[in-house]
Amino acid sequence: MQFCLRHCILACVMLTLALPAASAKDVYQDPSAFVADAFGGAAPEPKLLWVTRKLKPRVREILDRNLGQLRIRYWARESRTVWILDEIGKTKPITTGIVIDNGQIAQLKPLVYRESHGWEVRYPFFTDQFIGLTLNNDNKLSEHVDGISGATLSVSALKRVARLALYFDAQVSAKHD
């Protein structure tokens, strides 16, 4: 019995390896489609926010590291801005789309997920917690966001990009005021 079982398991392993390749990069939505959706189907031309010396200290405070990017591409129309940001969860970057409207998060959605754990962060039961959140003076989200057991690092990464998008939105809104 045990002999048969072991051989069945071995066969399963071989079968697994022979299965068609699939990418670990789970693309939940193409970033350009996300941007278009955020503007009712017609995205405006992208703009660039330069991460200047003035912005860098708070960006570092939010990320606990330097951003490593000169410019951030964003899309804006009226009171709405859309940001596509990458942040590492445990070992791989998570690409997240964030829509900010009137200084509040209108939508947050992981678009490309490359980690092998923490996949629950893609579901609305988690991401809906971000809707309506703003940024406090001390760079923190205005409300507590409950995590997911076993996905602490992915959850933290999404909290960071949410804060970063709110901060960037405040910068470009201040310029236009």
């Binding site: 988690f126 966001v145 409950d146 995590g147 997911i148 057991s149």
Partner: peptide, 8 residues
């Protein structure tokens, strides 16, 4: 099941 934030 971890279908609710903060619950497993």
């Amino acid at each position: 099941w971890s279908g609710m934030p903060g619950v497993e």
